[in-house]
């Protein structure tokens, strides 16, 4: 998938006077296990790049923005596959493709936000190839899945030849296209706390065309008490910053309050302190702030009883 950052670097390509459509020459190796991956990485060093769904990497290769010496294909690594539930945690293997997220029963039951997000992710051909691990590792600020995993309070399982470690999703995204991944490390799985009866989640975005990157988007996850009181709200915005933006002021404005027009307005007002969006081709920062407010109202209103929405 191509995005702003690729394009920005594409312009750098043009700035070098290059326009290209053919990949540079590189080698290819297929790993059958994580041990294989570590071995191939040590053999090829910094010139090695991992390829899974390839939906971003292949475009950057065609633009010659990335010139690896070898691609290590990790799609046959069994440790990275599968969706399971263990001890109150939903484990999603990094190779799980977007289309699989959309049809998996466990995900539908325990993390419905992810299923709801899938139709917003690009187009079917891309969803059939792209993986959740790839999307998270690439960390596009306008992508849906990074925002979703932050909203869900997920933990990312990272592995390297040195061993395994866990990083909270909100700590994983560290900057524009930057993550907590260290050299030689890859995402093996995403661990998501499973939904309870009180859990509410939804995703909303505005994109120019269906499948486009969002001009602004919001993934929200909260608990709603029987009295309508909100607990543990996590509002995560995308397309409005350097990465998924967990809106802390907005969340604070909502936590402990009864969900309604008044609290929603408070959240919208509090957003000003959370968001500092850059301008892009679609419009200025004011537009993104405005859209974020609109989406906030629309998303949170979905959790209101039908009678209040009508009012």
């Amino acid at each position: 998938m191509i995005n702003k950052q690729v394009v920005a670097r594409g312009l750098l390509g043009l700035a070098r006077g290059m326009s290209s459509m053919k990949w540079p020459a590189f080698g290819y190796a297929r790993a059958r296990s994580l041990q294989d991956v570590w071995r191939l990485q040590s053999e090829h060093g910094d010139g090695a790049r991992l390829i899974a769904g390839g939906q971003t990497l292949l475009a950057t290769l065609a633009f010659r923005l990335s010139e690896p010496t070898v691609l290590i294909d990790i799609t046959q690594v069994p440790e990275l596959r599968g969706v399971s539930v263990e001890a109150g945690t939903l484990r999603i293997g990094a190779l799980t493709r977007h289309a699989e997220l959309g049809r998996d029963e466990l995900i539908a039951r325990h993390a419905p936000l992810l299923r709801e997000a899938v139709p917003y992710i690009a187009h079917p051909a891309i969803r059939n190839r792209g993986t959740i691990g790839g999307s998270l590792a690439y960390a596009d600020p306008a992508a849906e899945l990074p925002a979703c995993v932050v909203a869900l309070g997920a933990t990312l399982v990272l592995a390297s030849a040195a061993g395994e470690r866990r990083v909270r999703a909100e700590d994983f995204f560290t900057g524009l296209l930057e993550t907590a991944l260290r050299g030689g490390e890859l995402i093996t799985a995403v661990e998501v706390p499973i939904a309870t009866a009180a859990t509410r989640s939804t995703i909303a975005e505005v994109a120019r065309r269906s499948g486009d990157y969002a001009m602004a988007g919001l993934a929200v996850h909260l608990s709603l008490g029987s009295n309508g009181q909100v607990a543990a709200p996590r509002l995560v915005y995308f397309g409005v910053g350097n990465g998924p933006v967990l809106a802390k002021a907005a969340g604070a404005a909502l936590a402990g309050r009864r969900l309604g027009a008044e609290s929603i307005a408070a959240v919208q007002a509090a957003l000003a302190g959370d968001l500092d969006p850059p301008s892009d081709l679609h419009g200025p920062p004011e537009m993104k702030r405005h859209l974020a407010r609109v989406l906030t109202g629309r998303a949170l209103s979905r959790f209101l009883p039908a009678t209040e929405v009508a009012a």
Binding site: V7, L14, R209, S210, G211
Partner: peptide, 18 residues
Amino acid sequence: GNLLTTTMADYLVPMSAE
């Protein structure tokens, strides 16, 4: 004078869904 819309992700053509 840099052209910013040089991919199909940035130069938006009309698509059937819309």
